[in-house]
Design a protein around this nucleic acid. Structure first.
Lengths: 148, 148
DNA sequence: ATTAAATAGTTAAACAATTGAACTATTTCG
DNA sequence: CGAAATAGTTCAATTGTTTAACTATTTAAT
């Protein structure tokens, strides 16, 4: 293995886990009663409008039963609702409740503010480049999973 | 809030969680019997040679009791050992056992190989830039926590 | 048209990661 | 000395996760 690649890997492994952990810890302060993971599920459902357990399991790369447990908690908290699909009665359609929508709008405001205070310490060019590469990585990982 | 910053934040939130989740899922395949989180703790202890619970709790931004639980599991698995500090008898010195060292060497080989197949789809310049920005973020997050 | 296979989701048992509060043991310092 | 600070553990509770077995429904092959 090439020497420089090896150093990249070492640096990447060291830094990526830390940023995720510390980022989650900071974010948690803004997420009253909802966990970090639950926040991302709510975000995803909001963006899609309606979605299924199977889709969530695919996107977040976990088993469907993990999604069942998670959505149970979100239903209990009044953030999402389970609906029916008339075309295929096996399907449960997940969507945000009014309360869920309100909570998310309010929380996004706080989270955006937090992320902004961090991002504005970098130049626009640097952020743009960073996110572009991040998006490439996401695409590569998705393709790798599809191959399996 | 500036329009472009807002878009950056949206893209960053969407992509960062996914890459972490999917990356962890892929990595899991290489980590026989050890979890993703445990792997990073072993890596950290290895890099430091010897370290304490308090240090781990600070670095990974969790409570000390989370570290106690985790190190208990790693001790049970024979990967780390608890030692004594002669100067200060409150301190427990954590270090890798021989078995832990061997496991880590073998696993790093596999993990590096995995990360390499992903990284080599990007240019050296792009990787370098990406990791540099990542390291800046880590530093910013650390400073924010120290202020609190 | 009937039946076998595939798909969507749930349940239950088990484990890992985490928090928070209460606790022990040790050290530091006014 | 005695109070405060520090290092770590314990315990109860919650969350996220996997795996295997399960129900209900749809698709597809003969």
């Amino acid at each position: 293995m090439e020497r420089s690649i090896q150093q990249f890997i070492e640096r990447y492994l060291s830094v990526s886990f830390l940023v995720h952990k510390r980022g989650a810890a900071l974010m948690k302060c803004e997420l009253d009663d909802i966990t970090h993971d639950q926040y991302y599920v709510l975000r995803y459902i909001c963006k899609r409008g309606v979605c299924t357990s199977t889709e969530l399991a695919d996107v977040f790369a976990v088993n469907k039963s993990a999604i069942t447990a998670m959505t149970n908690r979100l239903v209990e908290k009044g953030m999402i609702a389970r609906g029916k699909d008339e075309d295929d009665r096996r399907i449960i359609a997940l969507s945000l409740t009014e309360r869920g929508k309100e909570w998310l709008v309010e929380t996004e405001r706080k989270v955006y503010q937090l992320v902004e205070t961090i991002m504005t310490k970098l130049s626009h060019e640097e952020i743009e480049q960073f996110i572009q590469t991040y998006e490439k990585l996401a695409k590569i990982l998705q393709e790798m999973e599809e191959k399996k």
